[in-house]
């Protein structure tokens, strides 16, 4: 369980953790899509490679999630998994797998309007890295 839902009065947040940046980013993607739908019920029938840019690691994380959210809100694609292929301070490449949203099979849990910067920066912990991500819902 490398993420948990946290309390926020008006919105919703998750706390994500992992030993390193790639696992933190992968878990953040899963954490977000778990708020949208039951990830177990998404099949991995489509894949895509994305390149994301950012000014620092936190910006990169938020931008990745913004891009993945847009895949759903703009293109109707639900993401099952996001594997980080390479990551540097300013850019990352990831390979995602998922499928088209089908209202018959995918119950939507929350309408996430946006991924915000409100959770603050990625933090170092004794176990690795941790980030708080607040969604506007």
């Amino acid at each position: 369980m490398p993420f948990e839902v946290i309390d926020h009065t008006a919105d919703m947040g998750i706390r994500v953790w992992g030993p390193d940046l790639p696992s933190l980013f992968t878990e953040a993607a899963r954490g977000m899509f778990e708020q949208i739908t039951d990830v177990k019920r998404i099949t991995a029938s489509r894949t895509r490679t994305l390149v994301i840019e950012g000014t620092d690691e936190t910006d990169l994380l938020i931008n990745m999630l913004r891009e993945l959210l847009y895949l759903f809100t703009g293109k109707g694609l639900l993401v099952k998994s996001a594997a980080i292929q390479s990551i540097s301070g300013a850019a990352l490449t990831l390979r995602i797998a998922g499928e088209k949203y089908d209202p018959e099979r995918h119950a939507i849990r929350n309408e996430i309007k946006a991924v915000t910067y409100a959770g603050g920066d990625i933090r170092k912990t004794p176990e690795g890295l941790e980030a708080i991500i607040i969604f506007d819902i």
């Binding site: 000014t55 931008n63 913004r66 703009g74 309007k113 946006a114 991924v115 910067y117 506007d136």
Partner: peptide
């Protein structure tokens, strides 16, 4: 939602 998101991101940079 997207207008806000677009400009928050570009203004942050």
């Amino acid at each position: 939602h997207q207008v806000c998101d677009d400009f928050l991101s570009s203004m942050t940079r």
